[in-house]
Amino acid sequence: MKRLRLLSIFILLFAVLSCTSENDAQEEQEPENDSTYFPPLNSDIWETKSISDLNWNESQLQPLLDYLEEKNSKSFMILHEGKIVVEHYFDGHTNTSPWYWASAGKTLTTAITGIAEEEGLINIDAKVSDYIGVGWTSSPLDKENLIYCRNLLTMTSGLDDGLGDDISSSNLQYLADAGDRWAYHNVHIKLQDAVAAASNQSWSNYFNSKLKDRIGMTGVWIQNDNFNVYWSTTRSMARFGLLNYANGKWLNEQIITEAFFDESINTSQNLNAAYGFMWWLNGKSTFRLPQSQLQFNGSLIPNAPSDLYAALGKNDQKIYIAPSEKLVVIRMGNAADNETFALSNFDNQLWLRINALIN
């Protein structure tokens, strides 16, 4: 009898433990309880929120859209906690029309560099020539060897930025020691070459498998004047913005490590406080701009939230991320006014109108 009782207790205890383990396993597979919404992969389904649900000032939506149309926009989106609140297209553009990211796509290279480092393929504190060989610049070898992958991420290569967009070795000329000068330059493309060499596959294939396909983006890299430019739909740009709003995470998958991501969106060197790893940073006391060695006092975009970080591209391609407002904002199109490399007065005027809507 005693034996039977002990056997029954053992069976019951085993059953309880098994159920607990099974429940724990199920809980581990379920998405974390987070208010951020992620649209499904390979689908046009994307949940929305209404302006009235958010208690925004609906009367300010049309003036915002009118301003965007007046300023040569092709598309505009606002996500709140990942859900679409505003999505509008202009000038015959649609949700399936591709458009170029220009230098806003630099942050795609940032993300892939972080992924490749996590996989042990590259080290951002190693020389660029460790991956693509010596002679990739026309600098003296001792000066070329000063250029690390980190310098390409932070725009501190010391190479001459006044020679145009050509990134052939003959056009990458020494101007200052790496780390001594901040200058906006397309030499970051050499990081793509480093990743391709280290992964033993093309840049596009590595990009597609490690980032694009994992968050449901569409788009292609197109060669233009010796360097790659990314083209995609506005929603694909918004997906990438959402990944970065969520600190490099998509659902429960940490695609960009938290440590690398955090480093990316903080001041990366002591020359331009408003620059991370190819992300522009608002709310700093000083900033520098492309094609200039001047330092300006004040915040990069005074009308925008101080915690905003942004991917900014030529002719006003924009990804704005404002964690305090739970927003991702996308703008694609032609130059709002004059042709610009990154920041323009359009940023500040646009945020004046976004604030009128959301406050």
Rank of each mutant, 00 (worst) to 15 (best):
T340H: 10
P40I: 01
Y131W: 08
K2A: 13
I11N: 01
N55I: 05
N72S: 04
N359P: 03
I84R: 12
T20G: 10
K318P: 02
A15P: 05
T340W: 02
F38L: 11
V128N: 03
D166V: 05
W136D: 00
K190A: 12
S299R: 01
C19V: 13
K83G: 04
G333V: 05
D142Y: 06
A194P: 05
F90I: 04
W351S: 11
F296L: 04
V328S: 02
L242A: 01
V187I: 13
N95Y: 08
T267K: 09
G120A: 14
P98K: 15
A335E: 12
K249W: 04
E263K: 11
L65V: 02
A335S: 14
Y206G: 02
T154N: 07
K106L: 06
Q349I: 04
R331Y: 08
I147F: 00
N151E: 08
I167H: 03
N123Y: 10
G158V: 08
P140V: 11
S199F: 14
P140F: 06
R235H: 01
M278V: 08
D225T: 13
L172E: 02
Y37G: 00
R150A: 00
I215E: 01
E81V: 01
R150E: 10
N315M: 05
E22R: 04
A311H: 01
E30A: 13
A197W: 13
T154M: 00
G120M: 10
L61T: 06
V220C: 03
Q29D: 11
L12F: 14
R353E: 15
C149V: 12
S52M: 03
A273E: 08
L294F: 10
P63H: 09
D34L: 15
E22K: 06
I215D: 07
I122T: 07
K83E: 15
L6I: 11
A197R: 14
W56A: 05
K143A: 03
M237Q: 13
D337L: 12
V16P: 02
T156K: 03
S157C: 08
R353W: 14
I319A: 04
K83P: 08
I358N: 03
A304Q: 04
S232A: 13
L327R: 01
R214E: 12
I11V: 10
T137M: 06
S73N: 09
Y89S: 06
E27V: 06
L191K: 07
E28Q: 12
R239W: 05
A198T: 09
S168I: 03
T113A: 10
D130F: 14
T20S: 09
A238S: 03
N55V: 04
L163C: 00
Q192H: 13
F240K: 06
S324Y: 11
S21Q: 15
R214N: 10
D180Y: 13
L211A: 09
H188L: 15
Q29F: 07
T154C: 10
L163E: 03
I189M: 15
L61V: 01
E144F: 00
S199M: 09
L163I: 12
L281R: 04
S73K: 05
L352S: 15
W231Y: 14
L12W: 08
S50Q: 07
G276W: 02
G333N: 00
A104H: 12
N205W: 03
F227Q: 08
A311N: 09
D347M: 05
A183Q: 08
I9K: 14
F277A: 02
S204T: 14
I45M: 08
P323I: 01
L17D: 09
L294E: 12
N145Y: 07
